[in-house]
Design a protein around this nucleic acid. Structure first.
Lengths: 381, 381
DNA sequence: AGCGATCGGGCAAGCGCTTTCCATCACTCG
DNA sequence: CGAGTGATGGAAAGCGCTTGCCCGATCGCT
């Protein structure tokens, strides 16, 4: 095997590097020179999709190995007009809900696996701010991201939705794969291949409320999430549907026991204290999510109420800590890991868009210790 | 103001775009043409660091605005030999410890803020696998990442450490800012500007053990983390130091009550059952972290033991759920958000390297309901 | 008024890769 | 046996930006 010498450019480059005292990165051209082929060929064995003879391929692979070649991703992205980056927009990764989603997604990207799977996840905390969401999308567009996963979390107002739709359609048209996860579909031209993953929030909330009613609860406080979020709306709708079914006339009473709050623990705590102060009796409280339920439970305990003897408490999401609260939290499992995996497959194109573009993942009622029948001798809120 | 027409190249480009039916991204050259300046000038107003007359600047900014120009990040990265990407290696973002760290870091990067702050965080789950850690570093090197934050989590064996050191020094030499967070310094050439952030694990563990001893506990089980991790070592060392101080002779008994386990809930559960099975009495168990403590508590409760009446339980980290376990968990607060913020400042160069390159963040004992004096009439494990 | 210094901005050379178009070469078929 | 046909691999044109170098104009000073 004949080893060609690097061309003049490279010679100069290396010369400079030596002068300046640090080695420069190995380039395609150097690999090519070493393997005795052109850089085009090296590129082709590295990227596939083009026939390369076995011997040549071997020689190139060996040169890559020997030189410890690491491809320059920006250069590749520039030439190919698309990068290996996948943007993941979440409310906040520090929140377990999004952490699990993002973590599962990132792992499913499997960038260190063999072959083509070199997608890197860029996570962006939008903190529920529509402007931040748009701004991040702009940055990702600038990065020529190969895909973007938008998860729920940012408020859904029409202006923002429109601005988002513009950006998203431009990116999708340019070849970026877009996945909406846990948020409603965007008003986009139908032709765009944008995937949507939703959770059966409504069904879960329905089953949870039914569970409470079956236990005998008739006065169920509901700590709804922030208004304007589809998640909030769906869960509330499911809840109400269950109540209405049992007691078609009683919806007024329910409304009075429904409070909108944030998605944080403190929101649950504050809302519950407010509910307690109002003095309207209830025997159970269902929260927008586990975190809120936890805050609610703390407020109830502080008020001297026992869970579940005096008040039943239920959450939503089934985050890991739900089994370790006191008592373990009845909740609705949301398949976050599955969603992350699915999102990863969709955003990388490893899985084809389902018909209609939308996949709804099932939720599951998890009955645990925090809910029980209302007892006769209970203390009243 | 005279508006120049785009040059021929652009005309051709746009022509092609129109034919193919989708608009191509606005380029620097188009902005330049519109502002009546050269693309070099546009680049300069966008990147600063070069004098540009006020009027020119205004004109350029206006053109950028009108055209909705979004810079091509890969092109910039190629030309500048460095990208806006910051790699964050964590065990798993789904784990609150790392989720909080990564979330705080990402937010502190403030990429949607004004001006230069356009760093994007690439998060990588290493799952504790040294090979994955090295592989991710390679990918980030290929991305010409502007910075990398390595957090704890991967096993620390000599081979791996050496391999890591090679990669890290090459990247650092090439201008990538490297921050080690919650892991020991790497054996690197001293000249390299690598920052290290550590937590006072030893001090925290010491104070926690002292707290237990002060309560009157003398038989303290210790569920240590995976062997070979500096975090494990430090926490264990602090724990032992406190015990030795109270009872210089009793270290043997302690050793028998020390078990190494993983960092997951199940590890705490299993280890505690094992401890129970052994039948060696203890009145308290201190765990490697809150998650493990939670598993331990579950095992104890299952065995019919009350917390803290029969056995005190303590964790480490003070993750958010620690206040909501039953009872609330005594633990040691690790300033994760502060660490994330600091790491962000260091990795972006917004904060200078401290002398010696190493910053140790303090930990704080959080006494809550899960620890109490051993009672006389308690049930024995 | 004349001259070097300073400022502002243009030119153009890359950065390292992908990809289109071509040139070979070895065969196969009529 | 010449032309057609794949199968390979090379040459080279960019991708869109940064930046070193250089030039013209403006300015201050003697």
């Amino acid at each position: 095997m004949e080893v060609h010498t690097a061309d003049e450019t490279m010679a100069r480059t290396n010369g400079r590097a030596e002068e300046e005292g640090f080695e420069m990165a190995v380039t395609l051209a150097e690999v090519a020179a070493r393997a005795g082929v052109s850089s085009a060929t090296v590129s082709r064995v590295l990227n596939g999709g083009y026939p390369v003879a076995g011997g040549t391929r071997t020689r190139v692979e060996q040169a890559v190995e020997e030189l410890g070649y690491i491809a320059n991703a920006p250069a590749r992205a520039l030439a190919a007009a698309t990068s290996d980056l996948v943007g993941v927009l979440v409310h906040d990764v520090a929140d377990s809900f999004f952490g699990i989603l993002a973590g599962s997604l990132q792992s499913a990207l499997d960038p260190t696996g063999p072959g083509e799977a070199r997608r890197l996840a860029v996570v962006c905390n939008t903190a529920g701010d529509p402007a931040a969401e748009t701004a991040y999308l702009g940055l990702l567009e600038g990065q020529r991201a190969g895909g973007v996963v938008l998860t729920g979390g940012a408020a859904e107002n029409p202006d923002h939705t429109a601005a988002l739709a513009v950006r998203v359609s431009r990116m999708a048209a340019a070849g970026t794969r877009v996945v909406l996860c846990g948020r409603p579909p965007l008003p986009l031209p139908a032709a765009l291949p944008v995937a949507t993953i939703t959770f059966d929030d409504r069904g879960g909330a329905f089953r949870l409320a039914e569970h409470l009613m079956t236990l005998g609860h008739r006065h169920i406080a509901y700590l709804a999430g922030p208004p304007g979020l589809s998640t909030t709306r769906e869960r509330l709708a499911g809840h109400r549907a269950a109540l209405a079914r049992h007691d078609p006339a009683g919806s007024d009473a329910c409304a009075a026991l429904t409070v909108h709050a944030g998605f944080e623990r403190s929101a649950g705590y504050d809302a519950t204290r407010e509910l307690l102060r109002r003095g309207r009796p209830f025997t159970a409280v269902a929260a927008a999510n586990d975190t809120v339920a936890t805050g609610a439970a703390a407020a109830l305990r502080e008020a001297g109420l026992r869970i579940p003897e005096d008040v039943s408490v239920a959450g939503f999401d089934d985050l890991p800590f739900a089994v370790d609260t006191a008592p373990a939290l009845t909740t609705v499992r949301v398949p976050l890991r599955e969603a992350g995996l699915l999102a990863a497959q969709l955003v990388t194109g490893r899985r084809a868009l389902p018909p209609g573009g939308i996949t709804t993942l099932p939720t599951e009622l998890m009955v645990r210790g925090s809910t029980a029948p209302p007892t006769a001798g209970r203390r009243r809120p």
